[in-house]
Design a protein around this nucleic acid. Structure first.
Lengths: 334, 334
DNA sequence: CTGAAAGCGCTTACAG
DNA sequence: CTGAAAGCGCTTACAG
């Protein structure tokens, strides 16, 4: 039924050499005369032979697959960020003859990942998000599987690739403070994510450096849904905030919608900015000031590191990628 | 370095039986006494043995992997649709012990797919988009690999799972016509996609059924970017269109932005509707009338069919899933 | 009901 | 420089 696939044995027979020789010609390992190597390679080329990676993998205990662990929650399935990162990973994986196996896992869920790892279906894994308490990291460390985290973590010994959120948020906050914002309201999301901690840290740093005091009554964390955000916005406005700083694009989107519904004008009545950019924010009217990151590059970098890890090479513990602060209309003329 | 994995041989040795017996106990194939089966299963359970799927696959010429072919174009990487479908596929794949291998391919690009298929890394593939002239379909048919298309195609013999776009678009158009729209402008995208043809067909059908004449000068196809859409909007307005019907959500998004920039009010000055829903459209102010599909269900259904195919079962050539026409503020009170 | 052996398609010491 | 043989971890006729 299926195309009868030509194997290394077929090639060997046709050429009157051993499978060993064919294997060596292909892999380039081991001594082999230039002459026979060429014969083999030519034959292969002409007859369109492609080695069976699965069999190769069995023999070498490798799979040439990398596992990408995505959030399973509906809310996240749509977020462009994860898919851009994945595209970056896939891009460099492909260049190295690797493929991507998808694993959807909820927060701190490990069953799916465990199945894939224990089935030896992949040579390494990349985690697309990190939690303060992270069972996936704990599992992978216990099993001693090569892996890298996209995002930061406090677990020791894990290879991380992340944007420099802390510096980025510090810079943005400083910019706002430097241009006269007196009462900045900070609206943040789920605090079990490490990235929220980093962003908050950057925010704090900016105040420290400019020797100003954070108004704690304007800081709202753990905003998990639209309603909570609505409450925070109300409070912020009531307390006279002159700027609403959102810690991610989802929150910011909610804020925009809430303000529009209340007929509060941006940037006229209140300024708005976000610590995370997205196409929705820049297409908004007015466009929202935010920090921009290259998610795809993040993926490429993560994959590069993972590949190195699987080869047993040493890689730097933490790679920090840059960012761009993009001032747009929502913060007025700064 | 890596966890030393326990193999079927270890289990056999420990129990003093043959590997054959262990294998049979696990697979459930072949005669085996209830007694020894239980012994084996208990041991396995207790010692946490998981068979190596790769080895199993080699022996059976199976991989327990399914390939999902995604668009590689940047413009599409972000679209929620593809990721929702993929989540659906993954969901039912997982339930059946299968995993998802990702393949990013541009339009009519086959190299990546070819590598994966020829490397025998997957048992089947699902195509996430279909073109009128589709090299991926041609390749898969030639290679006789089980595959299913999410979306419709005119190639004969391909298993398809799609929403009933034609009926949906007919219904929506009829609704608009029935409520007094006299001059509907139709703005469509890339005509090399089969789905555009289906949608157009539905639009035509509605006119036929209501015995009205389509005003061809209000039909704009192959709008590939923002500028072209802008041109179409200008023309449509100039020719007195009372409704702008967008064939997908991206175009609709552009239209909304263009109208806003021109200070044309919706639904006051002109009504707007879309043949494809997305969260952006329903959150817009005003919310945009559109047709809603369950992308995740599409994925589940496609995967179910593919799994059946790989088992050599017969599956229905074409599965059409339903839809919902959602009338919202952008079309006024219908 | 159970097992020895061959086979899936490669790789890799080991010998020559 | 080249090859025979064992091995990766399973499955599956074939015998018994």
């Amino acid at each position: 039924m299926n195309h009868k696939n030509i194997t290394i044995a077929d090639v060997a027979d046709a050429l009157g050499v051993s499978k060993t020789t064919v294997s060596r010609a292909i892999s380039g390992k081991g001594r082999i005369s230039e002459n026979t190597r060429k014969r083999v390679l030519d034959y292969i080329e002409e007859h369109d032979y492609i080695p069976n990676v699965i069999a190769k993998g069995l023999a070498q205990s490798k799979t040439y697959n990398l596992c990408v662990v995505m959030p399973r929650e509906n809310m996240f399935v749509d977020l462009p960020f994860f898919h851009k990162v994945t595209a970056g990973i896939q891009e460099t994986a492909e260049q190295n003859g690797y493929d991507i196996l998808l694993c959807l896992c909820g927060e701190n869920e490990v069953t799916g990942l465990e199945r894939i790892v224990r089935n030896r279906k992949v040579d390494g894994v990349v985690l697309l998000r990190t939690l303060v308490k992270d069972l996936q990291i704990e599992f992978l460390q216990k099993r001693k599987i090569p892996f890298v985290a996209v995002g930061s973590t406090w677990y020791s010994g894990v290879v991380q690739v992340d944007n420099d959120h802390e510096s980025a948020c510090r810079e943005m906050t400083s910019l706002l403070l430097g241009h006269g914002m007196k009462k900045i309201a900070l609206l943040g999301g789920n605090e079990s994510y490490v990235v929220m901690k980093n962003r908050y840290q950057g925010f704090v740093e900016a105040y420290v450096r400019s020797q100003m005091q954070i108004d704690e009554s304007l800081v709202f964390m753990d905003l998990m849904d639209y309603d909570m955000t609505g409450y925070a916005v109300d409070e912020a406005l009531e307390r006279g905030a002159d700027c609403i700083l959102c810690m991610d694009d989802v929150i910011c989107l909610h804020v925009i919608r809430l303000l529009r519904a209340k007929n509060v004008r941006v940037p006229g009545d209140v300024k708005v900015a976000s610590f995370y950019n997205s196409s929705i924010l820049e297409n908004n009217q007015p466009a929202i000031s935010s920090i921009s990151f290259d998610a795809r590059e993040l993926g490429r970098e993560a994959c590069k590191n993972l590949l190195a890890l699987t080869q047993g090479e040493r890689v730097s513990q933490k790679t920090l990628l840059s960012y761009e602060v993009r001032l747009r209309d929502s913060t007025g003329q700064l």
